Computed example of a mutant assay.
Amino acid sequence: MSLETRLSALATRIGQIIKQRGVPAGGTVGQSIVKTGAGDYAFGWGTTSGGSAATRLTATVTSSQLANNVTELLTVPLAKGYALYQVTLSGAGWLRIYRDTASRTADASRDQTTDPAPGSGVVAEVIGTLGVWDQAVSGWDGKTPPDGVIPLRLTNLSGAAQAITVTLTYLPLEA
């Protein structure tokens, strides 16, 4: 077999391999390339089912019976990452939401009139009974590994002993 014939056969085979491992022929509008089997290069055209938009959720946690100006450490299951829309308290209080328990511990001595330092791990705080933001407040679970359980600190400011229910409205960003 001549060199020219062998080079021609090689070029044909390379073309076949490129076709096999490149974009497959065919397909229709709206289809995507999908994996069709376990082997390498096993793919073809298919219709994928689209996801849906995430749903806004609420999470609640209720403190024990707290005397006025008494603080309790709480946790609430949200998500590993979340967008916080609104927080309501059933009675007047000071609620702090943290990235992790170390941030909550480090923030223990801060008073209400002092803003948290940037990067301190304070995601948001509410003084009163309602916290609503013009733009969602993004937060995330800073533990390793994250489990979506978010640490809180709640102080009763109602003037009387009571249990306070905290309701957080949020959108999960990471499961």
Rank of each mutant, 00 (worst) to 15 (best):
I150K: 07
N68K: 02
T169Y: 02
L130F: 06
L130E: 13
A106M: 09
Q135G: 13
Q162P: 00
T165S: 02
Q112Y: 14
I164F: 02
T60E: 11
I164E: 03
T167F: 08
S64R: 13
D107H: 04
G121K: 08
Q112F: 09
A108I: 06
Q162H: 05
Y85R: 07
V137N: 02
R99C: 00
G91N: 13
A136H: 03
A79F: 03
V132C: 01
L73P: 09
L73M: 15
P151A: 01
L84S: 06
A108S: 05
T62Q: 13
G119W: 14
L84A: 11
D134C: 03
I150L: 05
A67I: 12
S109M: 05
S103E: 14
L130T: 15
S90G: 02
A83M: 14
N69W: 12
G142S: 04
L171M: 13
A92Y: 07
V70I: 10
N69P: 08
A79M: 04
L66N: 08
R153H: 06
G159S: 12
D115W: 12
D134S: 08
A92N: 15
N68T: 15
A92E: 14
S109G: 11
K143V: 09
P145H: 14
L154S: 00
G148W: 00
S158W: 09
T101L: 05
D100M: 04
A79Q: 08
L173Y: 08
Y85K: 14
N68A: 01
L152H: 00
E72N: 07
A163M: 03
L95T: 15
P145Y: 15
I127E: 04
T169A: 00
G81W: 10
P77H: 07
P116R: 13
G119N: 13
D115C: 11
L157Q: 08
A161C: 10
V137K: 02
N69T: 14
V132I: 15
W94T: 00
L154E: 00
A117P: 11
V61H: 09
D147N: 15
T169I: 06
N69I: 01
A79Y: 04
V149H: 00
G159L: 14
G121W: 08
R110E: 08
S109I: 02
V149W: 07
D100H: 01
L95C: 10
L66P: 03
K80Q: 09
L95P: 10
L152T: 01
R104Y: 02
P146L: 02
V126G: 04
V70T: 12
G93T: 10
A163E: 03
D147T: 06
S138G: 09
S64W: 00
E72A: 15
L154Q: 05
D147S: 14
T105Y: 12
L168P: 03
T129G: 11
